[in-house]
Design a binder for these strands. Sequence first.
DNA 1: CTGAAAGCGCTTACAG
DNA 2: CTGAAAGCGCTTACAG
Lengths: 344, 344
Amino acid sequence: MVSSKRENRASGRVTLDDVALAAGVSRMTVSRALRGDIKVAQELVERAMQAAERLGYVPDPAARALASSKSSHVAILIPLLSNQLFVDLLEGAQRTLLPAGYQTLMGITHYDGAEEEQLLKGFLTHRPAGLLVTGAQRSESTRQLIAKSGIPCVHLMETLEQEGLYSVGFSQRDAARAMTQHLIDTGRRRIAFAAAQLDPRTLQRAQGYRDCLEMAGLYDATLEWHNPAPSSMKVGNTMFEQILSVRPRVDAIFFCNDDLAQGGLLAALRLGIKVPRQLAIAGFNDLPGSAEFLPSLTTVRTPRWEIGVRAAKILLQLMRGEPVAEPNVDLGFELLVRQSTAAA
Amino acid sequence: MVSSKRENRASGRVTLDDVALAAGVSRMTVSRALRGDIKVAQELVERAMQAAERLGYVPDPAARALASSKSSHVAILIPLLSNQLFVDLLEGAQRTLLPAGYQTLMGITHYDGAEEEQLLKGFLTHRPAGLLVTGAQRSESTRQLIAKSGIPCVHLMETLEQEGLYSVGFSQRDAARAMTQHLIDTGRRRIAFAAAQLDPRTLQRAQGYRDCLEMAGLYDATLEWHNPAPSSMKVGNTMFEQILSVRPRVDAIFFCNDDLAQGGLLAALRLGIKVPRQLAIAGFNDLPGSAEFLPSLTTVRTPRWEIGVRAAKILLQLMRGEPVAEPNVDLGFELLVRQSTAAA
DNA sequence: CTGAAAGCGCTTACAG
DNA sequence: CTGAAAGCGCTTACAG
């Protein structure tokens, strides 16, 4: 018999004991029934669920976390929220995790390894059930922190090969290669690469650009422009002007992100440089506005929303201890050819 | 004497008992000392803190939440993350709350009252210590949910008058009025208003636009365009073309958000309409890119980052039970006059 | 000011 | 398959 105490510290909440009393079974049976534990008689499961429903029982996450050493939180670490890319990633993940009963704890690293580690440490005290992190590059100590925690972790945005790691992304390098090839195919020869932020994925794109031009015998290291500032229309605007002033005969600029490219298009407009006639401009990520720009911007559509969803699904399997069929998922990309790279 | 048990269920974590043992005091004294409770002898506070530091003690949020009926979470409800506005709001709040030991739980409502209520209910099961919500407009049941929870709550983005409510924002209406007046002052007479999303704050801006034009005897209801679609460059592009085709003699368009206005500028470019000569264009919020546009976009700088910070500070006071000097804070706005509205 | 006891609402680990 | 006991790591409420 379960006593229904209502003493001074009771929170007024409907508890497992209340449900057990109403269902005429033990607290443990209700606990197991509600979590879908297999070893409960069908009849008792129904009685428990009905009683829970009737009383409006909602499990207490804190009590559950304390008892099981595992919270209903999933921590997600992303560099920024000012790039729509990561907003989509987050939305996709959240939309998948929330219905499964997991709350998202979001940490913004600002592309800073130390900040990432700090955030991670804070999250770990909450004993999250799962971890979602951006990319694979991080300090050894951060890597250890993740590994030693034993908490399931899925890497976002890149495709990894390493045994025992999980990832969902696409090949940044291949995508950049495809774009560069497109520029060559449409007759461009002096193709510049303009990168900002210089995070690992940007550098992978730079590598793809290089690969492709070297293969074609067109690579010229002086056409590669790297700016450590955060990516923005403003920086793209500046870089365009800079590149053109130093290398006026460039006939294409491949910006590593659409906001840079949009800034570049505005600079071209301002300087009276005809795009695509005199110069082709390409971007990356297909951000809002790129289809409406003048000229419309050729870019690479990246499946970041889908990455968030798929990574969350894999994480759900890991958190439930289910086997994961495909630990490293490549979701590909799509070249979107628009006006800004039409053949000259 | 406290026993230091290490049985089968121990999590391996350093607990309050470990610290108490090391410091030679009771668990309660350590608990009080670490939380900065006043009624502890200075010497014991120091011993407790040193022991905690030495052992690397980190409080368990779940245990704390369970015992105190109050978690270390702050729930923040915002409409979208695809508008930089809300990203800034969130960043400001998070940057203030995190160092104070609070984790943010973010919910995206998509401007949907039912979704907001659903999210709120989910958050409430976590017994958050505080609540941050966007605007004041919501269903009676949602309002009740907040009130009955007894959890401190601060409203973002608007200035409220109501007794007992807390808010940080600015007058959307005054800001729109100021922009409209600027357009009148620079010689415009047939001033259109183009709104999307139609959320409460957008409608407040519409009201400010109306006020100002009526006062000037220039109001023409057929120049007010409302589109329920989410705000985007694409929608702005379309609305511009629409307005111009129906009312070709319009001499200014005030878009309720910068992304719309940027889309409008691109449409003008495409249609060969000279801005600001033939038509002035104004936006709202000073989003990334507006200063770089061609022509650069006249807009209203809104202090959303500061709103996030200030609201979080007020919430911290409320959560600590401290008095709040100014429950309703108006952080103002700034008219940014740029090229797109230069006198014709 | 300090501490022993009890309790927060669950789950683990064990018996049956 | 079911349940009584113990415990997760804290804080509340009460004594002293």
